[in-house]
Design a protein around this nucleic acid. Structure first.
Lengths: 337, 337
DNA sequence: CGGAAAACTGGGAGCGCTTCCAGTTCCAGG
DNA sequence: CCTGGAACTGGAAGCGCTCCCAGTTTTCCG
């Protein structure tokens, strides 16, 4: 009859006792530190095995002043922003890199006031060894908190109006320029843009890229029609564009969701794509492949973004001073342009 | 000149000293426990404020034997399974519920062997107060680990071959039946199905629902054409179906991704939807709305799934014994059927 | 106004682990 | 056979907080 009843977790003391050594030696074995004779090392290992001992991470954390966890904070006033598959990919990348450093991933959706307060708590109480911050808005209270935190902080994408010391970003300006140039080089001259919220750096940067490309080609940039990166606002923006500039023959949408929305509006308006109007998106998410017609878009290495953020954070935690990173983008040509 | 230099974090002892009380009293104030006079309470609060004191969660965890965190473990041999927007929504729900209980969310993608070992470590070392488990496969090693863990465990969706004590699931059988009935009641009689992997409970349950509905209507169920829940395998499965049963007039796809793939194949094969072949999906993710034609599908309350899992876990952690939950689904009629 | 009950207080013993440091032991080399 | 140093070892002092408990002060009635 196996006694499955909750036998208390065994401790390092018990291991040491069973192995006939002191707690210090047992500890050294577990952290494979030097100064342990082969014999004792083996004795301890045997004891660990027999007892099924697992070190208590909390106690270890208290003693070492290292929590063994890194936090990924996603800001935004609406938790649904997180539903964007973008974040899932970031997480996959970050998770893998943290795993390599044997750190746990804490996820904080800092949408509500309450959530933000908890993040502040986390930052100030050193509840994690470091933090990755994403999707900050203009005047986001998290910016201030992050600055005051005496803790490694890595930004994912540069926040508006801040110039953080450590960040990983994607070449949004370059990508948007490339997308617009693609449209222009295909002979389109009346190219409008559906921009993302201009209180985000992504929204601004992609608009800037569009604008640069237009000016460089000697064309007049259109005033940006702004959406909030969702399909429905993309559709609405496209409708507005069509109403104000019926003659346009190309559209650069600041992300794929809005691009898909634009395609829908164009379809409903009976304007063939790409025959009449060509459309380019940004992100290269699944929706771009599924859209009809499949959306030409700017691919960005999202998983790599997450991975590099985590790596940078790990370096920071390790006392190094890594340099910021800007990841390249690349145009993916499909049927829509 | 403000001394921004890393002044050591202040401790409860310092607060107590500044407030002129003992550490115990200060502690009681912080946990607003009874037996503290109004005067001392205020004195402590003032000291906390002046020192900018924030309790150290690690020390608290060690003393209370509660980590203040719950883990969400997503199994699967491929981390990309996590890219499914499904999980993002689960997380939004779970995160909100955990926030209410003031618990942090740890996310574990247990794809690699290494990842699985880390989860085991977590389970055995009580590195979290409880665990939510999702996407288990048949014979998933996590099942055994979860059983042995002396820690609250809640399953999201029932794992194949296990009958866990606590879980939250969605009415997959009922939803699939409903979807199939919808097809049948629209006059379709040659209804095939694109099933999800049959080594997952979801895949099996949805196939069972399809089968039940067909039999109940006196129709012959088709053998399932199996995909792995991705768009491309959905497209491939549809192609296979078309090759084997060119006469079919309806398809129930076990999720929206595969449904979207099916739509693509049908479009490429020149089979009008829904005129020639009607299609119904499952999940009601964004892709269903964006698909062309928009996909009729079975809506499942994903965010609620996450929320209820977290709530159940919180109850369990609180020593209660909640009952399993099966969340209802509902048919959403769009153009594809 | 006395005494019992209730409210409050602070000392101290942990929680389980790391790590400093003062010994001990063990070898070469002299 | 002795000596200095390198290799080990284990005692003990924390890490910062909770909480039991015994002692002290109030409060409330009869």
């Amino acid at each position: 009859m196996t006694e499955g009843v909750s036998r208390r977790q065994s401790t390092l003391d018990e291991v040491a006792e069973l192995a006939g050594v002191s707690r210090s030696v047992a500890s050294r074995v577990l952290n494979n530190a030097p100064h342990v004779s082969r014999a004792k090392r083996e004795a301890v290992e045997r004891a660990v095995h027999r007892l099924g001992y697992v070190p208590n991470p909390t106690a270890r954390a208290l003693a070492t002043r290292q929590t063994g966890a890194a936090a990924l904070v996603v800001s935004g006033e609406d938790p649904s922003i997180f539903a964007d598959p973008f974040f899932a990919q970031v997480i996959v990348g970050a998770s893998a890199a943290l795993e390599d450093a044997d750190l746990h991933l804490m996820l904080c959706l800092a949408a509500s006031d309450r959530g933000r307060r908890r993040v502040e708590q986390l930052l100030r109480s050193k509840g994690a060894d470091g933090v990755m911050l994403m999707a900050l808005r203009e005047d986001d209270p998290l910016s201030r908190m992050a600055e005051e935190a005496e803790m490694p902080v890595v930004f994912g994408g540069r926040p508006v109006g801040l110039d953080p010391r450590w960040y990983v970003d994607v070449d949004n300006v370059g990508g948007a320029r490339q997308a617009t140039e693609h449209l222009i080089s295909a002979g389109r001259t009346r190219v409008a843009t559906i921009a993302g919220r201009l209180d985000t750096e992504v929204g601004r940067a992609r608009y800037r890229g569009y604008r640069d490309a237009m000016l460089a080609a000697g064309l007049d940039p259109y005033p940006p029609e702004v959406g909030d990166f969702t399909e429905s606002t993309g559709a609405a923006a496209m409708a507005a564009l069509l109403a104000n500039h019926p003659g346009l023959d190309g559209v650069f949408a600041a992300n794929d969701n809005m691009g898909a929305g634009a395609l829908r509006t164009l379809r409903e308006a009976g304007r063939p794509v790409p025959g009449d109007v060509a459309v380019v998106g940004f992100d290269d998410l699944a929706v771009a492949r599924i859209a009809d017609p499949p959306l030409t878009t700017v691919h960005q290495p999202i998983e790599a973004l997450g991975r590099e953020m985590a790596r940078m954070l790990v370096a920071l935690i390790g006392g190094q001073d890594p340099t910021p990173l800007i990841l390249p983008t690349r145009l993916v040509t499909r049927a829509s342009a």
